[in-house]
Computed example of a mutant assay.
Amino acid sequence: MNKRRKIFILYARFGEGHWQAASALRHSFERVGGADTVLIDLLAEAHPFLNGVSRFVYAKSYNVMPHLYGWVYETTKGMNADSPFANWLHSFGSVALRKLIERESPDAIVHTFPMLVLPSVSRKIGLSIPMFNVITDFDLHRRWVHPAVDKYYVATDDISRQLRSLGVRPERIAATGIPIRPTFRPDGARTGVAAKYGLDERRPIVMVMAPPNVPSAETAKLCLLLRDRCGAQVAVVCGRDKALRDSLAAGLAPRTGVAVLGFVERIDELMAVSRCLVTKPGGLTLSEAIAARLPLLLYRPVPGQELGNAKYLSGKGAAVICRDPHDVMHAARRLLEDASEPLAMRGALEALRKPDSSDRIALDIARQLHIMEEASSKAASFPRTTLLPTSR
């Protein structure tokens, strides 16, 4: 009987996306990939104080200094893996990762966040561990790129081409899409879903993922414009942000046609009955909307990877970038009143769909590890050649 492999999945809690991708992969590895997984927030494990400060600064960057964050992102976007800044970035967590490797002996390490400390750790301990990068945005930053990466799993064919232009061999890239939960099934039965959230299935529904970078009063105004000017019902999802939910509920909950929701486990059901989605352009939410073929209105993307995601999807015709509540209202009205516009956007979304992304990544990594193990076994068993002295 073959021993089950152990795989480390490294993520970070800067937003929910990296963790959600890691969780989706854990589900797939344990279900179809023949591996047990350990999810590790490496920065939190290695530098808890720095992690807390970094998360605080990241959260505040939405409101206080978005252009500074965007400037840093764009300035470092083209950095080389051997640059001093890249080496500094990839040095955090080396002691913690080394201890984890020596204690648990993983068969591979998968990144859903680019803390690429493994190559330096491998050199120090003299142990080669396969390394896989799952890029969780539609915009490529060179922080993800390193010569020690065995294979990249990317959102689109365009990122695949970008990596090839950087010298990465085609067999080391797979355009699988960003991993979303294998249980995400937006094509299921829709009967009764609207009523489950206090809405009327006979009237159009617009789904709003309440942006964390937007004051609750502005989000409330946006919801009322959608209801009053577009004739839509609004399902506004606040996730795990209880303070935001309470603030919106205080002003919106008594109003008919607006449902204020917290964390929604079956977000696929809600997407299935919605006509469009208003959201910030995070990679995981965008991937779920693409899977659901749900037209996207991307609200006030902040400079950095979110703006890169927004520009990419807008350029493909799969999304509209909106800067204020009235932009959203006008874009939603077009989608609700003009049948040709949502049809075109759904066609663009369909062209971007990569079904079963999480399972495909887990299965491919399992196959890659099997190939590596076979090659290593053959190399170890290959007979040494003894040179015999020649007769004079």
Rank of each mutant, 00 (worst) to 15 (best):
M79L: 14
G282D: 00
R229I: 02
D246T: 01
H141Q: 02
R275C: 11
G308C: 12
R353H: 15
G126R: 07
E104K: 15
G262C: 09
T156E: 02
M209A: 08
D36G: 09
V208W: 12
R245K: 14
A232K: 05
A175F: 00
R229M: 06
P212K: 06
A22S: 05
H326R: 13
N51E: 11
A35H: 10
D364G: 05
L388T: 07
I7F: 07
F382Y: 10
A195P: 06
M372E: 09
A253Y: 03
Y11C: 03
A272F: 03
T385Y: 12
G177W: 03
D338S: 07
K354H: 15
P114W: 09
R255I: 12
K124N: 11
T390P: 08
G192L: 10
A259I: 01
G17Y: 06
P114M: 08
A148Q: 12
P170G: 04
A366C: 13
G93L: 12
L297G: 02
P106Y: 02
A108I: 01
G315L: 13
Y152C: 09
L363G: 05
L199S: 04
L226G: 02
G282C: 03
E288A: 10
R266T: 02
I267R: 01
W19Q: 15
L349V: 05
V260L: 12
T183K: 10
P355F: 05
Y312M: 03
K6A: 02
E102T: 07
P106A: 03
I159R: 02
G34W: 05
P147F: 08
C322V: 15
N87A: 13
T37S: 13
L313V: 06
P281G: 14
Q20V: 06
P254L: 02
E373R: 14
P170W: 02
P383W: 11
A259P: 01
F85Q: 01
V145H: 01
K280L: 14
I173A: 00
N133F: 00
H146G: 09
Q20M: 13
F49P: 07
P170T: 01
K77H: 00
W71P: 07
H146E: 11
L297R: 04
V64G: 08
